[in-house]
Nucleic acid binder design. Sequence first.
DNA 1: GTCTATAGGACGATAGAC
DNA 2: GTCTATCGTCCTATAGAC
Lengths: 177, 177
Amino acid sequence: MTTKLIAERGFWGLSMQDVADGCGLTVPGMLHHVGSKDSLLVAVLEYRDEEDAKSLAQKLGMPVNQFWAEEPARITLPKVCSALVARNAEQPEIVRLFAVLEAESLAPGHPAHTYFKARQRRTLDQFTALAGEVAGARELAAQVVAMMDGLQIQWLREPETVDLVSAWEAAAARLFA
Amino acid sequence: MTTKLIAERGFWGLSMQDVADGCGLTVPGMLHHVGSKDSLLVAVLEYRDEEDAKSLAQKLGMPVNQFWAEEPARITLPKVCSALVARNAEQPEIVRLFAVLEAESLAPGHPAHTYFKARQRRTLDQFTALAGEVAGARELAAQVVAMMDGLQIQWLREPETVDLVSAWEAAAARLFA
DNA sequence: GTCTATAGGACGATAGAC
DNA sequence: GTCTATCGTCCTATAGAC
């Protein structure tokens, strides 16, 4: 529930009042559980990352947290990206949450600043490993991440006009040519 | 001055108090000039767009507001992108302002929602025209915009590690191949 | 665990003097 | 034009009863 509200307002625009209403609780009632606004934020982020990792591993038929470490031939970067995009296309609200927080957290004082910095490094490392032994693997990984983020923004801005999956497939055809 | 603060906090996290302090005024003193918080936002956005258009036209040696309408052979999409990236690399704070607002404004109720929707359409149209008569020109335009936005995020998150210009050149080599 | 009540600020905006 | 003073609203968080 929190996810939807943060996606609409961002973290700075989020009010605990609204979150509590959405949960059918009063404000102190939910603060008893989550502790504070900051810890609520990181809890939501980590929860979503876990859920996504599970879903992704299932889509690829791999055990969780191992899909990028082994079998470099069977699990390729294009396949992982397709699975990721398919997953994201199903949940626009969560994608918007990450898009908003990804930008907000660029400011050094933001509660999720270090979280997103670590997340970007981790994603780049994983994608680089998946890209294989080709020259410029890290460059390709960065471009893939950038393209996915950018297309998601366009999709979220005009969901009626843009289809995320087909937009990504067209981009992948160019990137992985 | 406002630019820097919005870039750090986003629009929802921005306080008129801070802006007024940054300008050496009191809060009502500056509200007299800008009218309201919402109008301050759009004023900043439109001002930046004008300044960027001027700078871009100068870099390309073209009259303002005509660089995408004519001479499709001399002014190509890669050239415009290089000029844009070079311009953006000089002003990380303004780029962060747009990155934050671009994500925040995805919410339908945001003061800049319609502004960014129109901006995205306009940019896509201009880039599509610049791409020329090739098949899939609009797809290419969308991918170029996505790549620029995504690389900017990575650059803003780790300015010490990522160099925006060289990252873009590597991406352009792949996109325009 | 969930509530009522309330503290203690910060916010955007207005009114009116100078 | 810029100020002081202030209104009314919203916020996060705490204290303490049930």
